[in-house]
């Protein structure tokens, strides 16, 4: 079997999903080189934190501890260089959404680039309200990677499934009804900061299109945009903020003239 990046990505996603089942078990046995969940995570003393969680604590309390600040910076640095790769390569719900997207009622997502701005505005209002009311980090409760890993913690610690776990099948049903990656596109608040970070630098890791090699210019929808979990058109010159660099379009294009590749290039 030829190893393409789609298989590598699946292995990566599955490894993360399985690791977070194992981590609470390791902690229970006093093996603590890795602790926490996808809201705040520590590996060999290197902190990683959900940037949105850190931001919410910061606006609602007015100060930030060094650990989550450093953790959020590390995560955002990756997003500055490569966009929201978390969503395509790491997020456990991303794996679930990809698999759900393969189920029979295959509705192709209508690429609505406006969705991103609407979601951003709503999240901005919520974060602004936190600053005024000093409420707890509410958006964490909508984080599916958060709930996946929190469920595993609670299962190992007390043998119960928290109510928030049921958001995962609920989101999968939304994806089935509303199109692939419905939750990720229209609801998930966590991806927002990663997507914003991906728009900072003029150069970053992206999908690069070579029109000279493309053999399906006249096709609409093209094979590459059909392969995209978000229904984006990889042939556009500017990177769409939602592109997770998952590389599915590149894998598909390998059968259609190798016009797409991934590498560091101009963002616009």
């Amino acid at each position: 079997m030829h190893i393409n990046r789609k298989i590598v990505r699946r292995i990566c996603q599955a490894t993360v999903a399985l690791s977070f089942i194992a981590i609470p078990w390791l902690n229970m046995h006093d093996i603590r080189f890795v602790t926490g969940n996808l809201l705040s995570f520590e590996f060999l003393k290197i902190p990683f934190a959900d940037p949105l969680a850190a931001l919410q604590v910061w606006v609602s309390t007015g100060h930030m501890a060094i650990t989550p600040a450093l953790g959020a910076m590390l995560v955002l640095t990756l997003a500055v260089a490569m966009g929201p790769v978390f969503c395509g390569w790491i997020c456990p719900y991303g794996l679930m959404a990809d698999l759900v997207g393969k189920l029979p009622p295959r509705r192709t997502t209508t690429p609505s680039s406006k969705a991103w701005y609407i979601k951003g505005t709503v999240a901005l209002i919520v974060v602004g309200a936190l600053a005024l009311t000093g409420a707890p980090p509410l958006l964490n409760q909508l984080s599916l990677p958060g709930w996946y890993t929190r469920t595993m913690q609670m299962l190992w610690l007390y043998g119960v499934i928290p109510a928030g776990f049921w958001l995962l099948p609920f989101a999968a049903c939304l994806d089935l009804g509303g199109g692939r990656r419905f939750w990720c596109r229209y609801i998930c608040p966590q991806s927002l900061l990663l997507q914003l970070a991906g728009r900072i630098l003029p150069y970053r890791f992206r999908v690069v299109y070579d029109p000279g090699r493309c053999i399906c210019k006249d096709q609409s929808p093209s094979p590459c945009s059909q392969a995209c979990p978000y229904g984006l058109d990889p042939r556009e010159r500017a990177i769409h903020p939602e592109c997770t660099n998952c590389g599915d379009c590149v894998v598909r294009c390998a059968h259609f003239g190798h016009a797409l590749s991934q590498g560091f290039a101009k963002r616009q």
Partner: peptide, 24 residues
């Protein structure tokens, strides 16, 4: 305001005294 629900306190608890709130 400060708790981000990471559950590290519950994992670190040597006596299983710290529980995590389950509801919605």
């Amino acid at each position: 305001q400060n708790c981000i629900h990471c559950g590290k306190c519950a994992e670190s608890c040597r006596f299983d005294a710290i529980k995590l709130t389950k509801g919605l």
